[in-house]
Write a protein that binds this DNA or RNA. Structure first.
Lengths: 257, 257
DNA sequence: TACTCAGTGCGTCATGTGGACGCAATGTAT
DNA sequence: ATACATTGCGTCCACATGACGCACTGAGTA
């Protein structure tokens, strides 16, 4: 079995190719049907959900490793991906999780296995366009699916803490940086964008004030076309002005003092 | 020589007690004579300045490790200390730095030494009260001194990048959190606090507007005493209202949306 | 065809905050 | 006593924000 061989090699020789004690975990956010979603995986040999993660090659920059992990899980590249925190409680070890299925598949498990040691993980969060994500099973043969941010199952290790911190970071970033280019399709209506903001902030915003404020940033351009087929008035379609969007990304939106 | 033995043990057996490939570096900020200072060290066996750093014990939480490093270098504990970013360019290795003095002192250096491998470092920044810092020489026999943030010597590895990121983080935090309790003495004048803000933000602030805004946060209490001995009008002394200060720390000051 | 109605786009008003600056009070130097 | 730099407090205006009114659009319905 191919997958089996892959895992066997990973477990036995992973310490030859990867940095020891270090991993990367990605909180991948998507937006669909007015819900903020997060991508979770379930490994074949562990009956518990987890953030998609991976390891760092011995000569690989960590940002590159994060991008590789993201691509392996979602098929996406060149999306918004940012490191936000590093987690390192000493009890972060896979030792206490049942991985005995491995032995059934002929993979020997011993306590000194590199992957069972204490791990420190670098947290990244990504914003991806929901519809573009390809939920293919990957080499570690995982189940992989989207979960509403407000109904997340119990997670392995401290992954729940990582998710919370990622979400909190996202919420904070909203005050400085424009958010949306990576979460929404090419064109979208104003109310879709507002729903995104409301979901992240978890509060209602006044439709009219939102319109005014977001337009004042000058990162949106209104298209001449409108969205047809709606049961009511056809709303205008908008798209991001990438030039000004990126300028706002680097310069920031609100700065006190 | 005691120090020699210590280093010998560290180099030879460090991989027994510390997590491999991982280090902690601290950007320690202080404020003195209207200048923002940063604490730098120069190791005995390397002729280049560096951020004070250390390693993580195999069973030690990383925050605890950071606090330990801080205490070893400054004698301070329970100060403001926060993780801000993790740096991991693959060229972060001590291999290229001249450490041949070690061999003169009878310490064998070989390429496989754990400390010469690639390191990923977790960056912490600390705010400390300048006058309380005790610049004692520590066991690794370093030179240790304060440097003005605007005239930093060339640093080892990517430490300059770490300093810049720490400073940038500090500046950003200023918009959310009250800063000053850990950088200023118990009591201080309004203009001293303003100078601190001006130094961090690197711009002039209107004295009267600063007064109004900082007072609106209600984290300061004006003392009845005034600062005597000044050549002009005696300014009032202020101190932080710790209760409200800490509340502001957790709740934040400005939030848009 | 005329009407209903939810969603949309734009405007008004009150309130609050930030930047620029005036001015009186204070305490030391002369 | 007088000069003067520093300090504390107040005023004015521009602008952002929150609350909300209103007219418009276009599909569904009588």
């Amino acid at each position: 079995m191919k997958t089996n061989e892959f895992i066997k090699a990973l477990l036995n020789a992973g310490d030859q190719t990867f940095l020891p004690s270090l991993s990367i975990d990605c909180a991948i956010f998507g937006f669909h049907e007015n819900q903020l979603k997060i991508l979770l995986v379930k490994h074949r040999y562990m009956d518990i959900w987890a953030l998609p993660g991976g390891f760092i090659h011995k000569h690989e920059p960590i940002d590159e490793a994060a991008n590789r992990v993201l691509k392996e899980r979602t098929g996406l590249h060149d999306v918004f991906l940012q490191q936000f925190y590093t987690f390192g409680d000493p009890d972060r070890s896979r030792k206490e999780f049942h991985i005995k299925d491995l032995e059934q598949d002929g993979i020997e498990v011993h306590d000194e296995l590199w992957i069972l040691q204490r791990f420190i993980t670098i947290g990244y969060y990504a914003l991806v366009e929901f519809s573009k994500v390809n939920l293919e099973q990957n080499q570690i043969a995982e189940t992989c699916s989207w979960w509403d941010i407000h109904s997340i199952p119990s997670l392995i290790f401290d992954h729940r803490k990582i998710v919370d911190k990622a979400f909190e970071t996202l919420r904070t970033q909203l005050n400085y940086h424009p958010i949306g280019y990576n979460l929404l399709p090419e064109t979208f209506t104003m109310s879709e964008l507002q729903k995104l903001y409301e979901t992240i902030l978890d509060k209602k915003l006044d439709r009219r004030n939102f319109h005014r404020k977001i337009m004042s940033f000058q990162i949106l351009q209104r298209l001449t076309e409108t969205k047809k087929g709606t049961p009511h008035k056809s709303p205008f379609l908008y798209s991001f002005n990438l030039e000004k969007y990126n300028a706002a990304l680097t310069e920031g939106l609100n700065t006190s003092w």
